[in-house]
Amino acid sequence: MKVTPRTLEESQEAEARELLERRASRLREQGENTVEEAVHWIAEFPLGEERYALSLESLRAALPLKMVSPVPLSAPHVVGVLRFQGQVLAALSLASLLGGHGWRQDPAVLLVVDRGDGELCALDCEAIPRPTTLPMSAVEAARARAEGAVMEVFTQDRQLIHLIDLKRLFSATRGTGARHAR
């Protein structure tokens, strides 16, 4: 037996319930029809005109870019040092590390990441990254192809993402912290 709603609030509530019902059944159907594909979680962000990403598991925190002390005589990619959970971390210019020349806007965010060797550092970024996924197969294929620290991976909707391999990136820049040796 269908009950006729008596008030406007009750009517809206019923509509919302129906809407949620429809969405739920649609999602259930999708789950039954598609074969679940392994995915790689990433933190995606813009860098210049392109889209870049880091493996989400390497991301430890996103902080506002402040309280960074510049380090005179350090390498050009070193923005400065900051304090994070009692440790002193280096804040690095990601654009500079990747051989770029700048950002569209001044970075306002620092991403604290694991460099791949257990040490943490902070990378500057225009905005807080967006968590999303890439097909694991595409990531593996790109990794096999790539020689440098940046892998080109296409998303399911054919968008190009530059996935950064932090371990490779930092092993390539190791030992270049000083501008002027003694």
Binding site: S69, V71, S74, V88, A90, G177, R182
Partner: peptide, 21 residues
Amino acid sequence: PSEVRDVPAWQGAATLSRGEL
């Protein structure tokens, strides 16, 4: 940190009252 440890001018960093280094 290792990225600036080789800069011969500096031996370390200390935290000041506002949290800056």
